[in-house]
């Protein structure tokens, strides 16, 4: 065959390189397109509700699709309460577990625990929900909630009848679900801490814990913060498991024993059967609020993670 230099090809109208590159450009930029399209689509479809209720949407407590009153406060309250509480429980557990994997135990046991944690992260949300509603909630109702009510019932957080399906159940299931995420990203961050830092601390006579406190944690601080914020993003957007165990009652209560409601849950329960166009638009607006919150959270988390280690951001 006669060898043709590449230049010869280029002069013909349609050449492979041009077409192939064009295709990859199109596909790569579609990622930006999708993100933009999502935001615009959510905004446009919530316009009827935005126009009707304005800012009072997020401060009004009344949610009554029949009367046409749409106030999102009970859902925002439920989402913030459940995700922040679960984050407060999950953060120390996750960081301690990640430290145990990377700093305390040997490599073999460490990677075994890490694999188990990854397994926990791979279980679908609906299966956590199934376990939550059929096993955990009845157990809470029988033992934990009566105990809390008997001993701490004077506190507003533990007052009320034990239903099982409750804010407490949501907080616990969310905690179980976000621990693996925070743990595995924190582990990546800790692995990116240079050994010279550890060796320096040990050489100065530090104990293992002092090494962690003075050398490892300060070095990984922003990355760990990124991991925690990413966990918050996951908790706030978590839908199925929470919907199954929280009780779905749009009431603002500070008691963990009372049922509650979250933003993703109300969307999951009501959207497919929205009673009016305004009802659907109001649910879209809740979705829009949720999208904006998670976008902000994710951008913050990724910036923090990327500043520490590219791989930690990549594997998340």
């Amino acid at each position: 065959m006669i060898f043709l230099p590449p230049r010869w090809n280029i002069k013909r109208g349609l050449n492979g390189d041009f077409v192939f590159k064009g295709m990859t450009v199109l596909f790569a930029f579609s990622i930006l397109g999708i993100l933009l399209l999502m935001t615009v689509a959510m905004y446009r479809q919530s316009l009827p509700s935005l126009a009707k209720t304005g800012w009072s949407f997020i401060t009004a407590k009344e949610w009554d699709p029949v009367e046409g009153n749409f106030g999102a406060l009970p859902y925002i309250h439920g989402s913030l309460l459940s995700s922040l509480l679960s984050l407060a429980l999950a953060t120390p557990l996750s960081i301690a577990t990640a430290l145990f994997i990377t700093e305390v135990t040997n490599r073999r046991l460490g990677s075994m625990i890490a694999a188990l944690v990854e397994l926990l992260a791979a279980i679908p949300s609906v299966i956590y929900g199934l376990w939550g509603i059929l096993v955990m909630a009845p157990w809470l109702q029988r033992t934990v909630e009566p105990f809390l009510n008997d001993h701490f019932g004077s506190l507003p957080f533990f007052s009320g009848a034990p239903y099982g399906v409750s804010m407490l159940a949501a907080v616990l299931i969310l905690m179980i679900m976000i621990v693996p995420i925070i743990t595995s990203i924190t582990k990546e961050v800790l692995l990116a801490v240079p050994d010279s830092q550890r060796e320096a601390a040990i050489a100065l006579g530090a104990t293992r814990w002092e090494m962690i406190r003075m050398a490892v944690l300060p070095y990984g601080r922003s990355g760990i913060l990124g991991a925690v914020i990413l966990g918050l993003g996951r908790a706030i957007g978590e839908t199925m498991a929470v919907t199954m165990v929280i009780g779905n009652t749009p009431k603002i209560s500070w008691s963990l024993l009372d049922p509650g409601y979250t933003m993703p849950s109300v969307i999951a329960n009501e959207f497919a059967e929205a009673s009016s166009d305004l009802h659907a638009a109001a649910l879209m607006e809740i979705g829009l609020i949720l999208l904006v919150i998670t976008l902000v959270i994710n951008i913050m988390a990724r910036l923090l993670l990327w500043s520490v280690t590219r791989t930690a951001g990549g594997k998340a």
């Binding site: 993100l35 399209l37 839908t239 959207f271 999208l291």
Partner: peptide, 14 residues
Amino acid sequence: DVLSGVPSIITGMV
């Protein structure tokens, strides 16, 4: 990375 953090229920709504 940001897109993979968007709650999946939002994807459904879109």
